[in-house]
Computed example of a mutant assay.
Amino acid sequence: MVNIVSQIECVCRGKRNKNIFASHLILLLLLTGCKSTDSGPVQYKANDELVVLAHGLGRSDWAMRYFAQQLKRARYKVCSLDYASIGQSVKAVLLQTNKQINACISNANKIHFVGHSLGGLIIRAYLQNNSVVLNSNKLGNVVLIGTPNKGSELANHLNGSWLLHIAGGVSQALVTGDNSLGNTIDELDINVGVIAGTKASLLTQSYFNSENDGLVSVESTKLNNMRDFITLDVSHTGMRYNQQVIQYTLNFLQTGAFLSPTRRTNTLY
């Protein structure tokens, strides 16, 4: 994997060709992926609170391992989804994750959801399609981290390419516009907080016209009915390991807000 990354960097430095970089970036996801942690079933006690944790495109539950560890340190039970997304249709991915989430939350008394990138769309789609959970008093808070709720301009650039074709229906559904996966999901009346990154990448910046995390624009992460919103100087990939992101996620899970009222500023929105 190190050799592949090195080749990509050499191509980008030598030819200054961002189209080649974008193509290699998708190819890297196709060739590598992540190892699954293959975690066992979650056992619950009466006062336990569960967090269903969803990873992003081309990843596995391994990608959220550090995040899961921090949630467990805060005394949450964690059920990490592990689903295939590259080469998969939207229907297939939603079917996979629907079954996994149902197994996760069985017998849980309080259920929170945290999703990074595509994982946030998986969570929104699950709640839309499962009204019993949506309307249950067991449903807690939801945090979406770098989620392309309105699609990604980078996906627009790759749209129609052979790489996006073999990447599958889910990848193709991450374009912006009416056909974007995020725009086909209802905005539900739930306690949802949104975290957006503002640390852009020089390699993808030309595809964006506004603040972004290298893959998703800040505007794309926003929902009309979000209860809270915050931007942090972190990249899309870095969100999974960033202590500020983790702390603000914990704050929202515990209180329904990223910051206490006394710490709020006008720069949050």
Rank of each mutant, 00 (worst) to 15 (best):
S201E: 08
N130H: 15
S171P: 06
S106E: 11
T147M: 11
T267F: 11
H236M: 01
L127Q: 09
K77H: 10
R240F: 07
L174M: 14
G87Q: 09
S206H: 14
I101H: 01
N212G: 06
S36D: 03
H236Y: 06
S152V: 07
I145Q: 05
R16W: 03
V194W: 02
S136C: 08
V245E: 04
A257R: 10
G115H: 07
L188M: 12
R263L: 12
N98W: 10
L154N: 05
K91D: 15
V216D: 00
E187M: 08
L30S: 04
Y248K: 14
A257P: 01
K222G: 02
F21N: 03
A84N: 13
N135I: 02
L127G: 09
E187C: 06
G33H: 14
A196W: 01
N141M: 10
L134F: 03
R264T: 04
N17E: 12
G214C: 00
I145M: 12
I185Q: 06
G146I: 08
V90C: 06
K18I: 00
N137E: 14
Q247G: 12
G119P: 12
R59L: 11
S36G: 14
L188A: 08
T176C: 01
H165F: 13
V234W: 05
H236D: 03
L95D: 15
K18W: 09
I122E: 05
Q172Y: 09
S60R: 15
R59T: 03
D82S: 15
K45N: 11
D178H: 02
M239I: 10
L53N: 04
R75A: 13
K150W: 02
A63N: 12
V52K: 00
D61R: 02
Q69T: 15
T198K: 08
S89D: 14
L259E: 13
V114F: 02
L31N: 08
